[in-house]
Every structure is written in structure tokens, then in C-alpha cells.
């Protein structure tokens, strides 16, 4: 099956401090083994150092033509975020922008969040939003409604948020779901396809935090057709990567 992994993690991960860290060679081996077309990384270091973290990721992306990046930005650092957007989003390695809504205080539907995301329209790239609470889910939905000519992707960080997101985002055609195998219960993938359509369900493994075979198993066991499986695992992401 053709594959694009839309969410991988670069750098030291808070969730896996006691585990052996994944290396560049591990990432390449994963891409080789599963014949991945692309792996799309987010920098964990950028949560602390927006500039340095993204810069280190940019440098690292050059180590393999299959490596792509999500540019991590923050509405708490407007000027730096805009500078980074101008610096990187015109480069082919970067597929879009990521906002980590780690707490309710990071909700993107603030004045500064909306201003920043609005300013990103010129780059015509998708925006990935992590969702960690009902408040941040509402925030993601509000922003997708307000700026309906940007493609948004939400990545819910719990089983309940994943399930609750489906009815909430059903009518928002510019909002797609990227479920995580860490949290997804069976058969949320099939439910998502039914609720929001196969073109709005995406796939990623959280490589760097998770063993990607868990995400492979998730999609393998879902009661969906082979064509839908291929769409989720590849075509939908390919359209994002252009």
C-alpha cells in the first residue's frame, strides 16, 4: 500500500523520555521498510525555542528527500512566527504550519491566533492543530469557520476528543481529521469515514513517539474498503503535499 506519514516527531519527546530515542537512521529505515513516499515531521524543540527548533528541523530535513516538515508557530510569538513563515513556507520541504494547543491557554481562536492564521493565507498551505481539550476543539472549529479558505487538520489527543470531534466537524468541509493510534478506539476510522467522508480522514503514525505499526494496525483493522484505505493512507496526504 502506498503510504505518506503525515505526523512524525523530531527531537526529544516528553512522552518517551524513558525510551531509546529514535535516530535519523531509524527514520530512514522506517521509510525504506514501508516504502513511504514522505514522512512529515514536527519539532518538539520548537515548543521551547520556536526559532532554533524549526531551524534545526530544517537542517535535518535535508538528510533525506522523503523528509518533510510542519512549521511550528505560536500565536504567543507573533513577530517570530511571521518571520519564520516568510523564511520557510516558500521552501518545498515545508508542507504546512502546526499549532500545538497544549493547554486551553494555547487555544488559537484568540485575536492574535486569528490574526496570525489569517496572515498565513498567502502561503496557501494547510494548518495542523493539536486538540487536547473540549475548549481547544471548540477553538479549532471556530478558527476553521472563521477562515474557511484554509485547509485545517485536527489531531485529537484522546479517545473521547476523537469521537466528539466527528459530529462537531461534520459540516466544516475545510476541516479534516488526523486520528492518533495512541488514542483511537475501534472503529473510529470507519465512523469518521461515514461521518465526514473518506477525503477528510488522514493518516499518520506519530513516529518518534509511537511504533508506527500501531497506526498501521489501526488502519488495517478498520472496516473500510481497500480504496478508502488507500485514500486515507496516501491520496489525501498526497493532495496536501501537492
Amino acid at each position: 500500500m502506498a503510504l505518506i506519514d503525515l505526523i512524525c516527531h523530531y527531537g526529544i519527546q516528553e512522552k518517551t523520555l524513558s525510551l531509546n530515542a529514535a535516530s535519523t537512521e531509524d527514520a530512514k529505515a522506517y521509510a525504506d521498510r514501508l516504502n513511504l513516499d514522505a514522512l512529515c515531521f514536527i519539532s518538539s524543540e520548537a515548543a521551547l525555542d520556536l526559532d532554533g527548533g524549526n531551524a534545526n528541523l530544517h537542517q535535518w530535513l535535508a538528510s533525506d528527500a522523503r523528509f518533510r516538515g510542519w512549521l511550528r508557530l505560536s500565536q504567543h510569538q507573533m513577530d517570530t512566527s511571521m518571520q519564520l513563515a516568510h523564511k520557510y513556507l516558500t521552501k518545498p520541504q515545508w508542507i504546512g504550519v502546526a499549532f500545538a494547543q497544549r493547554t486551553d491557554a494555547d487555544a488559537v481562536n484568540t485575536d492574535s491566533g486569528l490574526e496570525l492564521i489569517n496572515a498565513l493565507r498567502r502561503f496557501d498551505c494547510p494548518v495542523l492543530l493539536s486538540v487536547t481539550s473540549p475548549h481547544t476543539l471548540d477553538a479549532a472549529i471556530a478558527v476553521a469557520k472563521a477562515i474557511n479558505n484554509i485547509r485545517f487538520i485536527i489531531s485529537p489527543q484522546s479517545a473521547s476528543l476523537t469521537s466528539n470531534a466527528l459530529p462537531a466537524i461534520k459540516s466544516l468541509l475545510n476541516l479534516s481529521l488526523l486520528p492518533s493510534a495512541q488514542y483511537v478506539e475501534r472503529d473510529v476510522i470507519a465512523e469518521a469515514v461515514e461521518a465526514i467522508g473518506p477525503r477528510r480522514v488522514l493518516w499518520g503514525s506519530d513516529w518518534g513517539i509511537c511504533n508506527p505499526t500501531a497506526a498501521m494496525g489501526m488502519i488495517k483493522d478498520s472496516a473500510i474498503s481497500a480504496a478508502t484505505r488507500e485514500r486515507i493512507a496516501y491520496s489525501n496526504a498526497a493532495a496536501l503535499l501537492k
Binding site: A181, V184, E185, R186, D187, C210, N211, T213, A214, A215, M216, G217, M218, K220, D221, S222
Partner: peptide, 17 residues
């Protein structure tokens, strides 16, 4: 934790370790 969770998602990390 099947069938609540995807069984292959649980098997994969062990089999591929």
C-alpha cells in the same frame, strides 16, 4: 483491550520489535 481497541495496533509493536 480488544475489541475496544484495534487488535492489530496492539500486535504490531510487539511483532515488529
Amino acid at each position: 483491550f480488544s475489541p475496544l481497541r484495534y487488535l492489530s495496533a496492539a500486535l504490531g509493536p510487539v511483532v515488529s520489535a
